[in-house]
């Protein structure tokens, strides 16, 4: 049997609204994945280090505060620097269309905007890890 998929759910930036992050973490766990939730106010450095130490295949970032353009590119850059480009990144939150396209151009696998269903997110995380 294959070991379960490991996912880091992270909440970067100063915002404390963690309802979405926690619901996603729980849904991924209920779907049989091993979920590590970082808690609040993680810097890009902390997130990438946690991803390395926990040996995850996917990182999920939850950002509602409008700080995604400062945070996400830095996470992608650190992943490249640490030769962790095989770790896939998905982002969820209040991300305007133009910004979502730009983040996907920087290598983010998928950006989920408000209203995305849990089923879609679970399926996308599996797919990102090459399981479907």
């Amino acid at each position: 049997m294959k070991p379960p998929l490991r996912v880091l759910v992270a909440k970067p930036g100063l915002d404390g609204h963690d309802r979405g992050a926690k619901v996603i973490a729980r849904a991924l766990r209920d779907a049989g994945m091993e979920v590590i939730y970082t808690g609040l106010r993680q810097t890009p450095e902390m997130i990438v280090n946690a991803a390395l130490q926990e040996d995850v295949q996917v990182i999920g970032l939850s950002i509602l505060s409008g700080a995604h353009n400062a945070i996400v590119p830095r996470v992608m850059e650190l992943l490249r620097e640490k030769e962790m480009a095989d770790v896939k990144v998905v982002v969820g939150g209040i991300i305007p269309d133009d910004d979502a396209r730009e983040l996907e151009r920087l290598g983010v696998t998928r950006v989920f905007q408000p209203g995305a269903s849990l089923d879609t997110i679970v399926a996308c995380v599996r797919e990102a890890a090459g399981l479907q």
Partner: peptide, 22 residues
């Protein structure tokens, strides 16, 4: 904004990208 809510000045490095957003 979030830096103010968290007790950071606008020129703190923790405030980068968040000044005036929320």
């Amino acid at each position: 904004d979030l830096p103010t809510l968290m007790g950071y000045d606008a020129d703190d490095e923790m405030a980068a990208g968040e000044v005036g957003h929320c």
